[in-house]
Every structure is written in structure tokens, then in C-alpha cells.
């Protein structure tokens, strides 16, 4: 045990050991210690599996998400599904949609594809842009830093939902909608991650081991790759774990407002748009997408908390807010 460790123990503060290359192993050990995170992780895995296997599952049921079944709804009563519990039965496991009679199970599992796919793609776009610009700002000269930081400030100041809403309106509808939604969310929502990466890179850059690498004679590129980027992994993964559930919510909200993923492609948010008028006649029409959305976001949030705690128990609380600049000033 090192001196710093002992000193910390003696002071009763419990500083964590410096993360090492054995970090991956420690990470899994700390993650496994959290039961809630494990359950959440299993749930996320299940959801991903369902989304991937959507065609298989619907084939098992013998339905697809887009076929209308006018015979299954009572047009005399405004399109209420015929049969108990909104038409649940052997053919339609979770019943059918009011008015159209489309199969709800099929729409739900295909909806998972859209939700998870869009959120994942948007997160990747956000991380790539955020890391690139954050590192560039931290390593560039004063003018590069000023320019990129001001630009980032402006992006952060633009409300994501509003900008996405407005942008989605003007792009021609010929563009594949889910890809478009992912791109728009990704292109607007990278501000905070860029700020965090810049702050972290600035901190790392000042560390003595980076100075030592320079004295060894290595060039900037090699130092960035070998000494800086590995130190960025933890905060980036942590913040990405926060972004993913948030992106799911944004996609659902945009689809709920009718500007996100458009019919006939199914999406959970879209399914909720008309659900409130049907809650008595077909409660599952409201409850299924709402429940799916809730569970997915909950599972991802709990998993994200777990990942954060496992990566860096002490910095966890600091990263939650994404105001690195101000905290920096305080410290």
C-alpha cells in the first residue's frame, strides 16, 4: 500500500487508488458490486435483444407493424378494438391499435428499434463531435480555444428540443426520418460533452507525466494518443451514459409532437400522441409505450449511475451537472 493511500486512510477520507491499466478489471469488480446496476444492465441487454430480434419476434407472432386490420376495430364506436382488453388474444398478443387495428406487439418491438437506434446513433455523434472539439480547444492555441469555446457556449445556450423541433420541420421529408432525427439530436447536443472534455484535457495537459513525455522527445500527436486520450475515457463514458437516456426521451418527445419519426414507422413517442383519448377503451394503448419508455430510461439511468460510480466514485457527483468551467473557477 502506498504512502498516499495510507495517509488518506489515516485521515479517514478514503481516497481511491489512482486508476491504473488494471482499471478495466477494477471497473467490472465495482460495477458487479452494485445489484441495481446489474439488474438495469440485464434489462438494457434484454431491450437491445428485443430490438435486434424484432422481425423474428413478430414472425413468431405472425404479424407485422404496418398492416391494417379494419375488421378488428368497431367503426361504429369510433374505432375501439373489438374484444376484451383491446383485442388481446393468440393472434395479437398485446391487442391492436384503435382505429387502424395494427398489431400493438409488433409496433412496440419495432418501436424499440427506433428508440434505441436513434438514441445510440445520436449519442455516438455527440461524443465524436464533443471529444474532437473539446480536445482541439484544449490543445490548440489561444485563438483556436477562444473560437471553439465561444462556439460551444452558443451551442449549449440553444435549447435542444426547440432547435431539433424547428430543424426537423425544414428538412425535406424524403430524407430517412430516423437517421435524420439521430443526426439532428447529435448535431445540437454535443455542447456539454465538449466542455467537459476540454476541461479534463486542460487538467491532464498540466500533469507532470505529460511534461515528462515531452522531455522524452515525443511529438504532440503521440502524447495526445498515449498520455491524454486514455485519461479522457472515464469522463467521456460517464457522460455518454447520461446522454443515452436523455436522447431516448428527446426522440420520444419529438415523435410525440409529430415532427420526429413519422408513420408508418412505429415509435413509442408517436404511439402516445393519440393514446389519451383511448385510455378507457384500450388502456394498453397508453400503458405499453409509456411503460416501455419509462423502463428503458430508468434502466439506462440506473446503469449510467452504476457505471459512473464504478469508474470514479469521487468525481461522480461533479460530472452530473456539466458546469466544469464554474467548478473549475471555484477550485
Amino acid at each position: 500500500m502506498s504512502e498516499a493511500l495510507v495517509a488518506a486512510e489515516v485521515a479517514g477520507t478514503g481516497v481511491d487508488p489512482v486508476p491504473a491499466a488494471s482499471g478495466a478489471r477494477q471497473f467490472w469488480r465495482r460495477l458487479r458490486a452494485q445489484r441495481a446496476a446489474l439488474v438495469a444492465g440485464a434489462l438494457v441487454a434484454l431491450l437491445v435483444l428485443v430490438a435486434l430480434a424484432a422481425p423474428l419476434l413478430t414472425a413468431l407472432e405472425g404479424q407485422d407493424p404496418t398492416t391494417y386490420h379494419p375488421a378488428l376495430v368497431d367503426s361504429a364506436r369510433g374505432g375501439v378494438p373489438i374484444g376484451s382488453f383491446g383485442g388481446i388474444g393468440g393472434d395479437h398478443w398485446l391487442g391492436v391499435e384503435p382505429q387502424t387495428g395494427r398489431d400493438l406487439f409488433a409496433r412496440l418491438v419495432y418501436g424499440a428499434r427506433v428508440s434505441l437506434g436513434v438514441a445510440l446513433a445520436a449519442t455516438v455523434v455527440q461524443v465524436v463531435i464533443g471529444v474532437t472539439l473539446g480536445v482541439a480547444a484544449a490543445l490548440g492555441n489561444r485563438w483556436v480555444d477562444q473560437l471553439l469555446s465561444r462556439f460551444t457556449d452558443i451551442i449549449v445556450a440553444m435549447p435542444l428540443m426547440i432547435m431539433a423541433l424547428a430543424l426537423l420541420a425544414i428538412v425535406p421529408s424524403s430524407f430517412p426520418r430516423p437517421v435524420l432525427v439521430a443526426l439532428v439530436i447529435g448535431l445540437i447536443g454535443w455542447g456539454n460533452i465538449a466542455k467537459i472534455v476540454r476541461a479534463q484535457t486542460l487538467t491532464l495537459k498540466e500533469l507532470d507525466y505529460v511534461a515528462a513525455a515531452r522531455l522524452s522527445g515525443w511529438g504532440t500527436w503521440r502524447i495526445a494518443r498515449r498520455e491524454l486520450l486514455p485519461g479522457l475515457a472515464a469522463p467521456v463514458i460517464t457522460y455518454a451514459a447520461l446522454l443515452a437516456p436523455s436522447n431516448i426521451t428527446v426522440e420520444a418527445a419529438l415523435s410525440f409532437l409529430g415532427v420526429g419519426v413519422k408513420p408508418p414507422t412505429p415509435s413509442w413517442g408517436q404511439m402516445l400522441t393519440a393514446a389519451d383519448v383511448w385510455y378507457q377503451a384500450a388502456p394498453q394503448y397508453l400503458l405499453l409505450p409509456a411503460g416501455a419508455l419509462f423502463l428503458t430510461v430508468l434502466a439506462l439511468t440506473v446503469l449510467g449511475d452504476g457505471v459512473r460510480t464504478a469508474l470514479d466514485p469521487r468525481a461522480a457527483s461533479r460530472l452530473r451537472i456539466g458546469t466544469g468551467r464554474k467548478r473549475e473557477a471555484r477550485a
Binding site: 498516499a4 489512482v18 486508476p19 491504473a20 491499466a21 482499471g23 500533469l207 507532470d208 507525466y209 511534461a211 515528462a212 513525455a213 522531455l215 522524452s216 522527445g217 515525443w218 498515449r226 498520455e227 486514455p230 485519461g231
Partner: peptide
């Protein structure tokens, strides 16, 4: 390379993610 430095803080002067052998081999 002919002018080297030994740093103050023994914690931050070595990259925690690399073995000491790797660090020493850098130059």
C-alpha cells in the same frame, strides 16, 4: 533530451495507466 527533469509530485509525474518500465523506456 540532454536536459531532463525530475518532478515534485511523485503521484502525477508517472502515467497511472502505464507500467513504470514503459515510462522509463519512453526516451
Amino acid at each position: 533530451p540532454a536536459v531532463q527533469m525530475v518532478f515534485q509530485d511523485p503521484v502525477s509525474s508517472l502515467n497511472p495507466r502505464r507500467t513504470v518500465g514503459e515510462s522509463i523506456a519512453d526516451p
